[in-house]
Amino acid sequence: MPKTEFSPSIDSRPTYSGLVSQGAAPAIMVADEAGAQALTDLAASDASVMDHAHVVLVGCGAAALGDVKPVALHEAPDFDAATPLVTQLLNTARMGTQIYLAGSEGLIGHVSALAFAAGMPVDEIQMEHRGSIARRMQCVHCKGITEDVTTDPFTCAHCGLTLFVRDHFSRRLGVFQGVCVDAETPGVVPETVEIQA
């Protein structure tokens, strides 16, 4: 699956300009199954990028990386399981460590928020979107996060309000903002549509 091209949007919406090798620097790489392809493409462009790379694969096995051999490879069944390890890697990262994230908006949002919390300069993180365009949405009312949102509007998994999907994005939280769609006219909800890239 190729790199996703998103339509032009507002300034807070991340653009994921794609992974570019920063050479044989220490690196933390996190990817899901679709994103693993971006890592193999990265290694094909410059094999040395894997010399000091810790790769964390979320929801897929090592086979997704083909014959690419990073210095360490970890597998986690989902985000929650990956979080302690990724947090540990971020907190103990040396100055100059490169971060590469590839996969869904949810994966990128989740890990970039962990990087923010660890005090990493978020604008220097490399990101490439591959695969699902489902969004990680935060309800502005109850603050609960609903993963894998593919429709607009959607139902908040926590408080049950019907929320519309904004393009406004917080890098600190790694989420898009969801706002009550029928706040002014309770019960009057527009037709549900699929989210577009």
């Binding site: 300034d11 807070s12 406004h168 917080s170 600190r172 903002q177």
Partner: peptide
């Protein structure tokens, strides 16, 4: 607008929803 959402944003990010001005 939400402080909790906007904390940590830069000038262009927190102004992103404003029409026309950019």
């Amino acid at each position: 607008w939400s402080l909790d959402f906007d904390v940590g944003m830069n000038f262009f990010e927190w102004h992103a929803p404003v029409p026309k001005a950019r």
